[in-house]
């Protein structure tokens, strides 16, 4: 797309000799920073749809089992803590805002604000994981393990033992939120790396590809949660 607009420029424009002004971040096989940025971004979007399709498998499993066993899913879902789920949703939405702000700031060369926005994002992500940890442990305490290990006990959980297919809900719950949580951790690592380089002054409005890509990834993690929250906690 980037190159098909000109069909017959003067021959000299096609020289590959490195005679143009040549920023340090430009890799040798690209013609311009613009081309490099666009390529990286398209690559990221392609990666994002692979992530979407990875999660789609679990959404299919959810849809199938929910459609087959609606009561079991409703009963099992009722044991999840809605308050914590809602708080986590807001935490993750806020982190999405801060990462969007970090890109906004770096585009305006406000490096310091960008750095703090990224730190805020990582902090919120950490908060998300902490809340998730408490949710998980409260389930484990009551024996709400996935699938074959399911052995519910204690108030609010005991009745699940009588409901067939309730273990399937917890299998899906743990697999989906587990893989989502793994993505949160990976995102934290990547954004932390980006923040470190922002702090060192590696990025500016001229070159901020990694922040842009990290942001896209982070928003996707947010989107997955936007769907997980109502499906697992609310309906």
């Amino acid at each position: 797309m980037a190159t098909d607009t000109e069909t017959a420029p003067a021959p000299t424009t096609t020289d590959i000799e490195h005679d143009h002004d040549h920023p340090a971040h430009l890799q040798h096989h690209f013609v311009s920073s613009e081309q490099q940025f666009d390529s990286a971004k398209l690559g990221m979007w392609l990666f994002l749809i692979t992530e979407v399709l990875l999660f789609s498998g679990m959404f299919v499993a959810y849809a199938v089992f929910r459609q087959w066993h609606p009561t079991a899913f409703a009963e099992a879902s009722a044991t999840l803590n809605r308050t914590m789920g809602t708080i986590n949703t807001i935490v993750l939405l806020t982190s999405s805002l801060t990462v969007a702000l970090s890109i906004h700031y770096i585009q305006l060369d406000k490096v310091k604000q960008c750095f703090y926005s990224l730190l805020a994002t990582i902090g919120l992500a950490g908060g998300f994981m902490v809340i998730k940890y408490f949710e998980y442990t409260s389930k484990f305490e009551h024996g709400a393990f996935p699938g074959g290990l399911f052995e519910p006990h204690g108030a609010h959980y005991e009745h699940l033992a009588q409901i067939p297919y309730a273990p399937q809900f917890f299998s899906i719950y743990f697999v989906m939120t587990g893989i989502h949580g793994l993505h949160v951790l990976i995102g934290m690592g990547f954004l932390g790396w980006a923040a470190f380089h922002v702090w060192r002054g590696a990025f500016s409005s001229e070159y901020y590809t990694h922040i842009e890509l990290g942001g896209l990834y982070w928003h996707l993690v947010d989107i997955i949660w936007i769907f997980l929250f109502p499906l697992l906690y609310l309906i």
Partner: peptide, 17 residues
């Protein structure tokens, strides 16, 4: 696959429509 799609979209020589 990702590499090829991006390469075909973004890396074509001038005139390679």
């Amino acid at each position: 696959g990702m590499n090829f799609i991006v390469t075909i979209h973004k890396m074509r020589a001038p005139g390679m429509t």
